[in-house]
Amino acid sequence: MGFLSRTMTVVWKDLMVEFRAKEMLLSVLVFALMVLVVFGFAFNPVEHDLSDIFAGIMWVAYLFAGTLGLNRSFMSERVNDALQGLVISPIDRSSIFLGKFMSNFLFMIAVELVLTPVSIILLKYPFHKGALLLGAALLLGTFGFAAIGTFLAALASNTRASEVLLPVLIFPLLAPVIIAVVRVTDAILGGDVSGVMPAFRFLAAYDVIFLAIPFLLFEYMLEN
């Protein structure tokens, strides 16, 4: 069996675990919805036009939800030391990382597929066109988040305060993605696509770098 099919085995396992514990996906979704509702109460979309800050609100909800999801993804590996079961197997250490990354990425995308239309409706955003570009922005931003997030969640799961530590680690390191993806989402939703390509290039560069480095470092992080 090749590298890719073993990676897919890890993804398959993660999705199975996810599917069995449906309440996890649901509670992450509900949490993200609550964030949106809180913003709704705070800014009152009936009286105010939230177009200017809509992209920011959306991403805050995604990132909070995503962080919750990442924590859980490695918590389930800690029960029975299950991650060790992967470590004793002959698969490449980096394919463990890649598998965990892919399942976290898919999880986030699933959350965003539900949340994006809901937030457009809930916050009364006048959305007309650019769905394709918006999709691309979501993919690129989520990719970077999942890449560095998977690595940091793996690190944080070995500490005494992982639930708190993960957000502390992730948001500063993710600042470039947050800045770029919120700007570009804002631009796409506002119908101004002139600055989209440079932002996409920047995001793609970040994605590649922060997938590659953890990929190389992961083997050192697994030993005990």
Binding site: K13, S76, N80, D81, Q84
Partner: peptide
């Protein structure tokens, strides 16, 4: 590939 291991922890996934 040639090692079989039983440790203190079971290394099993409770949800599977």
């Amino acid at each position: 590939q040639q090692l079989g291991i039983v440790s203190h922890a079971t290394y099993l996934y409770n949800n599977l």
